[in-house]
């Protein structure tokens, strides 16, 4: 499973990475390091029909994204 690293990237780059990954895969993970990116990605997934599972690890957030 592909794991994307969006830590340290400014808005809206993490969402663009998810948008691109969603075109190629129905099941992937992305790691971000701030709550704003989590919220933006969650909103994107809700709008596009993806489920999202969030885990916090050492201050980072690992988001598992799956096509519903």
């Amino acid at each position: 499973m592909e794991i994307l690293d969006a830590r340290g990237l400014a808005c809206p780059e993490p969402v663009i990475m998810v948008q691109q990954a969603a075109k190629k895969s129905n099941d992937f993970e992305i790691v971000v390091d701030n709550n704003i990116a989590v919220q933006n990605i969650t909103r994107f997934c809700n709008n596009k029909g993806f489920s999202i599972d969030k885990k916090e690890e050492n201050g980072d957030f690992k988001l598992h994204i799956v096509k519903k």
Binding site: P12, V15, I16, Q19, R43, F44, N47
Partner: peptide
């Protein structure tokens, strides 16, 4: 405007 255009958000 950016999010509306890019992500329909």
């Amino acid at each position: 405007i950016r999010d509306a255009v890019m992500f329909k958000d």
